[in-house]
Write a protein that binds this DNA or RNA. Structure first.
Lengths: 205, 205
DNA sequence: GGTAGAATACCTACTGGACGGTATGCGGCC
DNA sequence: GGCCGCATACCGTCCAGTAGGTATTCTACC
């Protein structure tokens, strides 16, 4: 297996470089040459691991699902979990190249509609699951359409992230997330539950 | 001036075709050939009016500001105006090729950061202006950060539009806008003002 | 009101370069 | 020695942009 270690390393290097370039340029404007340069790998090596540019992009998109599935709730209440997830995701968008590249490819529509839909659905499903648990716990206002709320929240996070990126290169993303919760939570959770939430980021100690 | 009529017509044809292609493919993946074909114009004609692909894209982006500046409030209360503006914009996103292309180019980051920032700021400023008027009228909850709220709303609209586009080709955009207001308004406006608003789309008679 | 000439508006053919992808070869670990 | 992992050289395609010519329409002057 020692030989596989080398292969895995170059594969990871390619994936990382590709994520970075896709994040910076978008799919169409990204060139294989730049990915090669940044990965410090030759064409043969790259095309040994990924048979086409599109396959490489799909592998980058996968990183998003991987991040989401490795994330650990670290909280008690479902709504608090949703809030925490938002902040964790925001930090990943600031620091994790794979997540950044994945998000850009997901947001750009065009070539791969199917994985994009899956990504949006994945987020929406997670949000909806948490909201269902919150409703069962009696935290939400009665009569709320959970699917609609989940769709709005995921969409809003998407857009806030995007505008933050354009305007401040995501420097104010955490602040904007906080603004979002401040605005949205009163229409979602009941006062008694709202009192128990920390809307601002909870720094894990 | 009869001579300008022809020139203006081809210019408009090029602009429309470009907006469509940019909307469908994005900036980098859009080719001048496709724009030419769709406009029914030759290369020489196009490059007479627009000196480069980038200049053409900038002209398309301008369409957004043009739409926004021609829009007429048609309402009494500032919050209602904001809601109506959202729905009007949603319809433009469904029907107006220039707006669609402009939005896609604005959302894609890369080549032209400056006009993008201007576009976001423009929307945010409009929203903020309406919120200020609403606050002065006593419609909003006290202590609301208007700039933050305006930023969240414009960001949310951006993201909702995007997810709607990916998931249903914008067919459920109106519904999602309605969901957004349902969720956001309780945290923004006071009950007495909320009662006077129509959250669903008001079809002008 | 007709015509010269000048600007405007447009057409065709071409170019240089970059891009994604492949073919083939080669070294080193099992 | 065989295959996994990688290196190098090359290819066909396509694309944005240009060069230089042509048509169309306006202006000026008779």
């Amino acid at each position: 297996m020692a030989r596989q270690a080398r292969a895995l390393a170059t594969r990871q290097a390619v994936l990382l470089a590709a994520a970075e370039v896709f994040d910076e340029r978008g799919y169409a404007a990204a060139t294989m040459s730049e990915i090669l340069d940044r990965a410090g790998v030759t064409k043969g090596a790259l095309y040994f691991h990924f048979h086409s540019k599109e396959e490489l992009a799909l592998a980058v998109i996968e990183g998003q699902g991987a991040w989401l599935s490795t994330w650990q709730p670290s909280s008690d209440s479902p709504v608090q979990t949703l809030i925490d997830l938002g902040y964790a995701f925001a930090h990943a968008l600031q620091d994790d190249p794979l997540v950044r590249g994945s998000i850009r490819l997901t947001i750009e529509h065009g070539s791969f509609t199917q994985p994009q839909i899956a990504a949006y659905q994945g987020w929406s499903d997670v949000a909806r699951g948490l909201l269902e648990r919150a409703r069962d716990a009696g935290d939400l206002h009665p009569g709320i359409d959970l699917a609609a709320a989940a769709g709005v929240i995921t969409g809003a996070v998407t857009g806030i992230q995007l505008s933050s990126q354009v305007l401040t290169d995501r420097r104010d993303l955490i602040q904007r997330m906080s603004d979002l919760w401040t605005l949205v939570l009163p229409g979602l959770v009941q006062p008694h539950a709202l009192a128990r939430l920390s809307v601002a980021e909870r720094v894990p100690s």
